[in-house]
C-alpha cells in the first residue's frame, strides 16, 4: 500500500517532511522519464483511476490525466457542476456508484472544504485531493515547492511571498503548509479584505505593500484574482487591484536582486501580473506546469505503493 505516511493525499497539513522529500525524489525520476522519446512507464497498469471534477478545471484535470496515462493507469473522467450534486445525488452515493465499477483511486476536485475527508470515511479507495474549496490543493503546493527547489536548491531559510486573494485560496494554504515544512519563511501580501484575520497564527507574516514584499522575498508566487466568483466584492475593481498589487516589470527592475516569479494559473495578464513579468526571465510559470505532471505521477505512484 501507500509508501507515504498517509493512505490518501487529502492535504499537505497531514503529510510529513519525509513524504514531501520522497515525492520530490520520485518526481525527479519521472521528470527524466518525461524527457524520453517514449514517455510512458507501465507502473500503474493494474490500477483504475477516476478523475471526479465537481468544479471546473482545465489544467489540473489535464495534468492529472496525463500523469495517469504516462503511468499506464486506466482512466475515467467525470465532471459535474456542484449544484447538480447538491440537489440530487449525494457525493457519497455518486462516488460509491463509480467505485462499484471497481475503481482503485479517486482524484477529486470539489467546491466544499473537507469533502475529501468526508469521503475517506465512507469509501475504501485511495483519494487524491485536487482541490477542496478554499481549503487545500496539495499537488499544486508540491509542484510549486518542487519548482522553487529546482531554482534555489534547499528551501530552508528562503523567503517566499504569496500575493493575491489569500482568503479564498486553497493554493495559498497548501503552499504555506508545504513551504513551512521545508523550512522556508512565508509572507502573504494582498488587500486586507482578502487576508484572513487569523493567518498569522499559522506562522506567516502579513504585508499590505507589494513593493516592500518584493524587496523581501526570493520567490513571488502570484495568485489569480477573481472578481466574478466572489459573492461579495472584497475589492472595488480589478483596475484598482492592479494599481495597488499588480506585479510589474518596473518593480522587478527596481530590486537589487533577481527573484523567481511564479503563478499557478490561469493568469489574468494586466491584473495581478503584467505580461512583461509573466514572459520575463524571472518567470518559471511554464516549468511549473511541466513539473505538475511529474509531481502528480509521483503522488499516484507512491500512494499506489509502487516502487521500493
Amino acid at each position: 500500500m501507500s509508501l507515504l505516511s498517509q493512505k490518501h493525499l487529502l492535504g499537505i497539513e497531514h503529510i510529513t517532511k519525509e513524504d514531501i522529500k520522497l515525492i520530490f525524489e520520485t518526481a525527479t525520476e519521472f521528470k527524466e522519464v518525461l524527457q524520453r522519446k517514449i514517455k510512458k512507464v507501465p507502473s500503474l497498469r493494474d490500477i483504475t483511476i477516476a478523475n471526479l471534477f465537481f468544479e471546473n478545471s482545465t489544467r489540473t484535470r489535464i495534468s492529472f490525466e496525463l500523469a495517469e496515462k504516462r503511468l499506464s493507469a486506466d482512466v475515467i473522467n467525470f465532471s459535474a457542476a456542484s449544484s447538480s450534486t447538491k440537489k440530487g445525488e449525494t457525493l457519497i452515493d455518486t462516488v460509491n456508484n463509480i467505485l462499484a465499477m471497481k475503481v482503485d483511486m479517486i482524484v477529486m476536485r470539489h467546491p466544499n472544504p473537507g469533502a475529501h475527508l468526508l469521503l475517506s470515511k465512507h469509501i475504501d479507495a485511495q483519494i487524491v485531493n485536487a482541490g477542496d474549496g478554499t481549503h487545500e490543493h496539495p499537488t499544486q503546493a508540491l509542484l510549486d515547492a518542487f519548482s522553487m527547489q529546482e531554482q534555489l536548491g534547499d528551501l530552508k531559510g528562503k523567503k517566499i511571498a504569496i500575493f493575491g486573494d489569500i482568503k479564498h485560496s486553497r493554493v495559498a494554504l497548501s503552499n504555506i503548509y508545504c513551504l513551512q515544512k521545508l523550512g522556508a519563511k512565508v509572507k502573504v501580501c494582498g488587500p486586507p479584505t482578502l487576508i484572513p484575520k487569523y493567518i498569522e497564527s499559522l506562522g506567516v507574516e502579513v504585508s499590505y505593500n507589494a513593493q516592500e514584499t518584493l524587496e523581501w522575498c526570493d520567490v513571488a508566487n502570484i495568485l489569480r484574482i477573481q472578481l466574478e466568483r466572489q459573492d461579495i466584492k472584497y475589492i472595488p475593481s480589478l483596475r484598482e487591484y492592479n494599481i495597488a498589487f499588480g506585479i510589474t516589470k518596473k518593480m522587478l527592475d527596481s530590486l537589487d536582486k533577481k527573484i523567481v516569479v511564479m503563478h499557478p494559473g490561469p493568469m489574468n495578464r494586466g491584473v495581478e501580473i503584467e505580461s512583461d513579468v509573466a514572459d520575463s526571465e524571472h518567470s518559471i510559470i511554464l516549468q511549473q506546469v511541466e513539473n505538475g505532471v511529474a509531481i502528480r505521477m509521483a503522488v499516484l505512484y507512491l500512494l499506489a505503493g509502487k516502487g521500493s
Binding site: 472544504p113 477542496d132 478554499t134 486553497r170 494554504l173 497564527s201 499559522l202
Partner: peptide, 18 residues
C-alpha cells in the same frame, strides 16, 4: 457573518471554511 460555517478563528483558517 456572511454565511459563515463556523466560528472565525485559527481552526477556520486551517480548514478553509467560510
Amino acid at each position: 457573518s456572511n454565511d459563515g460555517q463556523m466560528n472565525e478563528g485559527v481552526l477556520s483558517t486551517k480548514l478553509g471554511l467560510p
